[in-house]
Computed example of a mutant assay.
Amino acid sequence: MQFLIKILNYTIHWVRTCGFIIHNQTEKVSRKAGLTQDITTQKQQATEIIQLHETLEARVQERTIKLEEVNRQLEAFTYSTSHDLQEPLQIIEGFTLAIIEDYGNQIPDKALDYLQRILANSHRLQSLIENLLNYTQMINQEIPSKAVNLALVINESLIQLNTKIQERQAQIIIEEPLPLVIANHLILLQVIINLLANAIKFVVPNQSPQIRVYATQQEEYIRLWVEDNGIGIPSEYKEQIFEVFKRLHGNDSYPGNGIGLAIVSKAVERMNGKCGVESQVNTGSRFWIELPLFREIQ
């Protein structure tokens, strides 16, 4: 039993008491005894721990609220800035293209080359802005998931990449079966487009991309593989390539903005999955994404 007492100097103390009975040799009660222990220090320590815990919880909650607000402001700033950048960029592209189309025959070759460079870099900046928007939305927006047909999503990605496939004369083999997974259809489509686009792009010049897409089951997960015959990735960069703006090659060799694989990584993470790569330099790479297997309830 625990209770408070006031002693002679009028200070309050917490005490714990317990009592017990002492029997004699004939098992009769011979006397009763008790023990009283001052537990004021333990009580004070327990109270301090509770107060510290409550203080820490309040601080965590306060900082969480501040962080959420900062994220909202950052998302709004990124969205606003990106849109503000897009309008003048579209004007630059439009007027540059108009000059080339209307006055191309009158422009010196060197000046025409400059205009072509302006147009090409405008397209590159436009792509960068769009990818930044996609990445920001990937981080902050809710991503609802449901059963998704892998075969259907892969087929849609091939349709969207048809021009690049034809230009590079890429050969893509899709192997069955491709089970249902739990994912977001549109987000997964973007992921597969990014992986296939990289497989088409990162090959030795004048070599036709050879790509194989197939799935394996890892317990309750489906691992989708995108295998290529590309230039490969040094082992020390296999994790870094999934970071934002991480590029291993100059833009002249392989154009891009270094966000595609970051989008893949963040998107798969938001769909409760994982991603990775197996690769050897000058041999090719096998990128994979792992998503929960969809099972119908019997």
Rank of each mutant, 00 (worst) to 15 (best):
L248D: 12
Q44C: 11
L291T: 12
T64F: 04
I139A: 12
E48Y: 15
A120M: 12
S145W: 02
L85G: 08
H123Y: 10
N121T: 04
E69G: 04
Q171S: 04
R212N: 10
W225A: 00
E57M: 06
G260K: 11
L125R: 06
L132D: 04
E68G: 02
Q90C: 02
D228C: 04
Q171N: 13
Q280E: 15
A199Q: 08
K246C: 01
T17E: 06
H185M: 05
E290W: 08
I12T: 12
E75W: 02
T36D: 02
T26M: 02
H123D: 00
Y221S: 14
E93N: 10
R31Y: 01
P179Y: 11
L186Y: 13
L186W: 09
K28F: 01
I12M: 12
I22M: 06
I5Q: 04
V15D: 07
L293M: 12
W225V: 06
K238Q: 15
I211Y: 08
L89E: 02
Y221M: 15
D228G: 07
I159C: 09
F77A: 06
L248R: 10
D109P: 07
V60G: 00
I129Q: 00
E239N: 11
I231Q: 14
L186F: 11
E68A: 03
L248N: 08
I174F: 01
K146H: 09
K266M: 08
S285G: 07
P234H: 04
T55A: 00
A98N: 12
H13T: 00
I222V: 15
T78D: 03
G276Q: 03
E87H: 07
E57N: 14
Q298G: 09
V148E: 12
L196D: 11
T47C: 13
E269C: 10
I107M: 01
K266L: 04
T11E: 15
L261C: 11
G273A: 07
Y221C: 13
E227P: 04
V204F: 15
K238F: 08
S127L: 01
G276I: 09
P234V: 11
T47M: 14
L119S: 05
T64I: 07
Q166D: 15
E175M: 05
R31P: 02
N229P: 09
Y114G: 05
I143E: 10
E220I: 08
L115A: 08
G258Y: 03
V181A: 07
E142I: 08
Y79V: 00
Q218P: 00
R223D: 10
R124Y: 01
L133W: 00
I173A: 13
F287G: 06
E130Y: 01
S208A: 09
Q73C: 04
N24G: 00
